[in-house]
Amino acid sequence: MKVTYNYKRVFQHPITLYRIGDVRLPYGIALLRVTVAGIILGIMFLFRDVVNAVGSIMSGLTLVLYIGIPYLLSGFLLKKSFNGKRIHYFMYDFIRYFFGWYLPKKRLANDEEVLYSNTKAITFEKTIILRKEGNAHATSNSDQDRTQQSDAYEKRGNLGVLPNLSERHSSRELRKVRES
């Protein structure tokens, strides 16, 4: 009997750096954690006035902030999953969606892009219908009002289809209708 092996743990194991150039590290550092910490450090440099203001409260705290926050925050972000994905896969998909679909305002229908959705919608102009009314030689039974009215309930009894039950009839009248 063949035994299958689950490679999930092997493929999820991060790329680990044990040596940088000629320098040998005492323990391995995950490349993904270094990358995420570098991005966080870059964001902190963009807002360095705020970080320096917090660090100036106590002397020597600035260096701890610039090293500790990226290290701890990168560890937290790598353990957390976003929509069932790790942070780097989620950010890659989010950036593709944001710049590929959201900003261009593309529309989808049945998982396909709707073409020509940016064109102006078709509008219909109101048309005026001019009707000639009947002249003096028109027949007298023509309907000048041009509104259709239903008279099915009035003629139903005369057609012999069904009795008009909307009105109250005595049981004798109903028997006569049924027998005829």
Rank of each mutant, 00 (worst) to 15 (best):
Y5T: 04
Y7S: 14
Y7E: 14
K8M: 07
K8F: 04
F11E: 11
H13N: 14
H13A: 15
I15T: 04
I15D: 05
T16Q: 03
T16V: 07
L17W: 00
L17A: 10
L17Y: 00
Y18T: 14
D22G: 14
V23T: 13
V23R: 05
R24H: 00
I29S: 10
A30F: 01
L31S: 13
L32T: 06
R33D: 14
R33Q: 15
T35M: 10
A37R: 02
G38K: 12
I39T: 12
I40T: 05
I40L: 14
L41I: 13
G42C: 10
L46R: 11
L46Q: 02
N52P: 03
A53K: 08
S56Q: 04
S56E: 06
S56F: 03
M58D: 10
S59F: 06
G60C: 01
G60F: 00
T62F: 00
L63H: 09
V64M: 04
Y66C: 06
G68V: 13
I69W: 00
P70L: 04
Y71F: 08
L72Q: 15
L73V: 11
L73W: 06
G75V: 04
L78G: 13
F82W: 01
G84Q: 05
K85W: 09
I87R: 01
F90G: 09
M91T: 15
D93T: 04
R96S: 15
Y97P: 03
W101V: 09
L103H: 12
L103I: 12
P104Q: 08
K105T: 12
K106C: 12
L108D: 04
L108Q: 11
A109R: 09
A109N: 01
A109P: 00
N110P: 02
E113K: 00
E113H: 05
S117A: 11
N118L: 13
I122R: 00
F124D: 03
K132I: 14
K132N: 15
G134I: 12
G134N: 02
A136E: 12
A136S: 10
H137Y: 05
S140T: 14
N141D: 03
N141F: 08
S142V: 07
D143A: 12
D145H: 09
D145V: 10
R146E: 11
S150E: 08
A152N: 11
Y153C: 04
E154R: 03
E154M: 01
K155S: 06
R156D: 03
R156W: 02
N158Q: 13
N158E: 08
N158Y: 01
P163N: 05
P163G: 07
N164D: 01
N164P: 04
N164C: 00
S166H: 02
S171H: 09
S171P: 02
L174V: 10
R175D: 08
R178S: 04
R178G: 03
E179D: 13
